[in-house]
């Protein structure tokens, strides 16, 4: 077999695998969330479809596919149709740079367990997460409905506010790892995960990604009891499904980013790297669900105050402190 064919096949196989695993994981994350939330509220959650409700995601997909795909009369048709895809694609693309295991050796080749190890992986992640705003905003605007528009405006300002502190929380990580590549960042955490080295950055990043994922306590863009369903009020059928799946893929992505940047990625004793990575990501996802089951929604002005007056100055301070610390240690 010629060299390039093998490499191309490997890349395709990796892509397909990641895609498949990610979608299945997202579908089952929905089920897990419903189950866990149910248990927290002393009810069993979905348990009718299949044993323990394990076929529920399948039933949901069938339901979403057979629903009417409704487009409001006064909507901007093309943008309306484009937006959910945009939301799902930006979420999916981010996974291209996530290293989910140490390099494998297959057919005498060293295969890095990452779809594409960019040397600016951190920036790729930040870029795509800033583009994720578009799917939501355009969808909300194109629906031509006041609830959708309000949800989109809220989401827009929330996401750009928290993206700042998220990006600034990553600066100390890059300073500590001395690289933008996610692989190198994981390598730099071989001894101690960055969450222990720089707990402040960890905390800021954690809060920012909860805000970034538009979930409780930061779910103002889709606050059910104020805005019906926020930016996707007018969506139905599989278009709504794309927004929905995109949200959960986003959850997994943000979880893996937290793992890579602060929890040491696939580093861990005894077990193979990919198992450690999955365990950590699932734990982070559980934490997200736990937060949803526990905290109430913030008020909008509280959200903005917290983002701009507490998180942002703290993360700036943290950048300066980390720089000073690194300089001092170098002598």
């Amino acid at each position: 077999m010629p060299e390039w064919l093998l490499i191309t096949l490997l890349i395709l196989a990796k892509l397909g695998l990641v895609f498949f695993v990610l979608l299945t994981l997202a579908a089952y994350l929905v089920l897990a969330e419903r189950k866990i939330l149910g248990r927290m509220q002393l009810r069993p959650g979905p348990n009718r479809v299949g044993p323990f409700g394990l076929m529920q995601p399948l039933a949901d997909v069938i339901k979403l596919l057979t629903k009417e795909d409704f487009i409001p009369d006064q909507a901007d048709k093309w943008l309306f149709m484009l937006a959910p895809g945009l939301a799902a694609v930006t979420a999916l693309l981010t996974f291209a740079v996530v290293p989910f295991g140490p390099p494998l050796t297959l057919f005498g080749h060293e295969v890095p367990l990452v779809v594409c190890d960019l040397n600016i992986g951190v920036l790729f992640f930040l870029g795509l997460s800033s583009l994720a705003v578009y799917g939501m905003t355009l969808g909300g605007w194109a629906s031509n409905s006041k609830y959708a528009l309000l949800g989109a405006i809220r989401g827009l300002s929330q996401l750009i506010s928290y993206e700042l502190s998220m990006g600034l929380a990553l600066v100390p990580v890059v300073m500590l790892a001395r690289s933008f590549s996610l692989n190198d960042i994981v390598m730099a955490q071989a001894d101690v995960p960055f969450a222990l080295v720089n707990p402040l950055a960890f905390l800021i990043f954690l809060i920012s990604i909860v805000a970034e994922s538009k979930r409780i306590p930061f779910d103002l863009p889709e606050a059910e009891n104020e805005l019906v369903a926020g930016f996707h009020t007018e969506y139905s059928g599989m278009r709504f499904g794309l927004f929905f799946v995109g949200e959960y893929i986003n959850l997994i992505i943000l979880g893996s980013m937290l793992t890579v940047f602060f929890l040491g990625g696939w580093m861990g004793p005894f077990l193979p790297g990919i198992v450690w990575f999955s365990i950590k990501v699932l734990l982070v996802c559980f934490f997200f669900i736990w937060v949803r089951g526990t905290l109430p929604r913030l008020r909008y002005d509280q959200l903005m105050h917290f983002g701009w007056k507490i998180l942002l100055p703290l993360s700036l301070l943290n950048v300066i402190l980390t720089g000073a610390f690194l300089l001092w240690r170098q002598g």
Binding site: G38, R39, M40, L42, W290, G293, T294
Partner: peptide, 19 residues
């Protein structure tokens, strides 16, 4: 006040359901 509810929801997860 922020930490306490986390403990309560976690404890609830292991109590029998009432459904």
């Amino acid at each position: 006040g922020t930490i306490q509810p986390f403990w309560i929801t976690l404890r609830n997860m292991f109590r029998p359901t009432v459904t």
